Simulated assay, not measured.
Amino acid sequence: MCAAVYVLSTVTGYVLTSALLLKCPTLLHRKKRENFLSQHISHRGGDAVNLGTDMLELDCQLTKDEQVVVSHDSNLKRATGVNTQVCDMAYSELPPYLCKLGVTFQRECFCEGGEDKRIPLLRDVFEAFPNTPVNIDIKVNNDTLIKKVSELVVKYDREHLTVWGNASNEIVKKCYKENPRIPVLFSFPRVLQLLGLFYTGLLPFVPLKEQFLEIPMPSIITKLKDPNRLTKSQRFITWLADNLLMRKSLFEHLTARGIQVYIWVLNDDEDFQRAFDLGATGVMTDFPTRLKDFMDRNGISKLQ
């Protein structure tokens, strides 16, 4: 009887402590320093800087002559019409972008390109937007690419304006080792670990090196594909992932620890509203003007 009472009191104490620290994590952890706050994040959209976007999201690859270029795809067939790998060509040999490109996160939607069809260098972005935070996805597990991106960040004095990483935990570890002064994103395995810690009540007790959680809103799959073509198992997995990931208490705990939460890639008012209602720090979009209009109409600003 005494043993049962002891176990019950211990478990109760743990649960209450966990709940307290979930709400007030700074009782145990020092809040991470936030050099910038990004609510409006533009998914590969440099023109959005004129709109006042808080952050640009882009992807980096390495050319044959070791130039760091901004390109989502390793193979350029989709973007340029030429079936070639970025890493197999020198920068001067890269083909230009097509005049019209599909929008990945919007069904049956295309965007027109500008007059300059060149694939840009990362240094071009840094020079054009010296004061705009940039979110860099290291698309290839390449030590030279990681080193050169770090060198460019340092050269342009952007360690306080940059976050980098990838879904691969190996790449994130290499990024952190190369330059621990540049904040890193949660990799996919670390997101799974984060969720495990959250649902077991252990998260409030565990230190986190990452400063940015960047996750999809699983429910948007129904807007990317015909919902009638999704199988029952696909619909169930989407529902389960959405319910596990989209947790207001998780987002509030992380932001209280100075870890910003970004949700991607949202392109309509309904999803914008849901993300901010859940307590996400920011939203990543393919349509910067649409997101800005929504934020202006709803009074969403850094003064919140």
Rank of each mutant, 00 (worst) to 15 (best):
L254S: 09
G113E: 15
L101K: 12
A3T: 12
L240S: 06
H29F: 12
A167V: 14
D277F: 02
R158Y: 07
K173I: 01
H29M: 09
K23P: 01
V49N: 08
I221Q: 08
R274C: 08
I220L: 10
T80C: 13
F294Q: 10
N243Y: 09
C60L: 12
L101G: 03
T132W: 07
G114A: 12
H253S: 03
F205G: 03
S38Y: 01
C109S: 14
A280N: 05
V15S: 10
E170Q: 09
F272C: 11
K117H: 14
K100T: 14
C175S: 06
R290N: 06
S301T: 15
I171A: 12
T63R: 03
L22H: 09
I119T: 12
N75S: 10
D124Y: 02
L161S: 10
C24N: 15
T285R: 00
P227M: 05
P189C: 08
L224I: 13
M217I: 06
L240W: 13
H253F: 13
P130C: 11
N166I: 02
Q260T: 08
D242Q: 12
F188T: 14
L20Y: 15
S9Q: 04
V70H: 06
C2E: 14
D54G: 11
L28V: 14
S42P: 02
M55R: 11
V82I: 14
L250R: 06
L101W: 01
Q211Y: 01
Y199K: 11
L145V: 02
Q61T: 01
E93T: 07
R235V: 07
L254Q: 09
L145H: 03
S150V: 05
V163E: 06
D271T: 13
A79I: 15
C109W: 02
L192T: 03
S74P: 04
R78K: 15
T53F: 00
G114Q: 06
R229W: 02
N131D: 14
T285M: 00
L291F: 00
